[in-house]
Nucleic acid binder design. Structure first.
Lengths: 129, 129
DNA sequence: CCGTATCCATTCCGATACTG
DNA sequence: CAGTATCGGAATGGATACGG
């Protein structure tokens, strides 16, 4: 995949949106484009179509496990954008833990023993199995 | 930004690549496209150009702080791809902590008090300041 | 309300050729 | 090695009109 609309659709889906119209209104994307993206996301196993929960004859688009696992990716992106893309005085949103009503922790990469890892501290290797 | 090559360039940059030719060889992208993407990344403050460390008359492209902070985003994406995009028997790579030589931990979102948060446990709100 | 079909403008990309 | 210039094809996106 890799395009911008797809990312925004997944973000909305993670926020609980399920209906064609919800995505369309929230994103302001052309309907043909939205339909194409939703179709691609279903084909990639990120969303699945289920009959609408209300009586209507339509479908709802809900995340699969694979789709739900994109949560940390989107959170990481959100935190990065929050830190670097917005001026201090702009209105911005935060991700809060529902139970406490407090902002969540910043995602950080840790080693097996719990040490915090910076960019140079990790390296890509061929997996040993 | 938001396009695919850009992401791959940042990934390479996080892996320590700095030279035009390194990116070009690693990615197999057309040189004009690479030049355009590098220019855009510099304009966005993700890379900066510095004189080459060897004697040559060329530039190197190194990450800014803003660029380095994309590390968790790319790691999250890598871990997701590892879990969902590759078949078990395919050859895949892992991110290892240099000091231990052991794979890093999986990124996970935690609340202020340390509780592990799943998708429905967090919610976007207007920031209180 | 939920899509599909069509059309057009723009962007993006790959290949190639050229310069220092 | 490190780019720039140009060209044509393909994919993308927006607008709009249409149908269930």
């Amino acid at each position: 995949m890799g395009d911008w609309w797809t990312l925004l659709i997944v973000r909305d889906a993670l926020a609980g949106k399920r209906r064609f119209g919800e995505f369309q209104k929230s994103l302001g994307v052309a309907k043909n484009v939205l339909a194409a993206r939703l179709r691609a996301l279903v084909a990639d196993g990120i969303l699945e179509m289920v009959p609408a929960s209300d009586g209507s004859a339509y479908q709802e688009y809900v995340l699969t496990d694979k789709g739900r696992d994109l949560f940390p990716v989107l959170v990481a992106l959100r935190q990065w954008a929050h830190a670097h893309l917005f001026k201090p005085e702009e209105i911005h949103t935060t991700l809060v833990d529902r139970a406490l009503g407090r902002p969540v922790r910043t995602l950080e990469l840790r080693a097996e023993d719990g040490r915090l890892l910076k960019v140079g501290d990790a390296e890509v290797r061929i997996a040993t199995r």
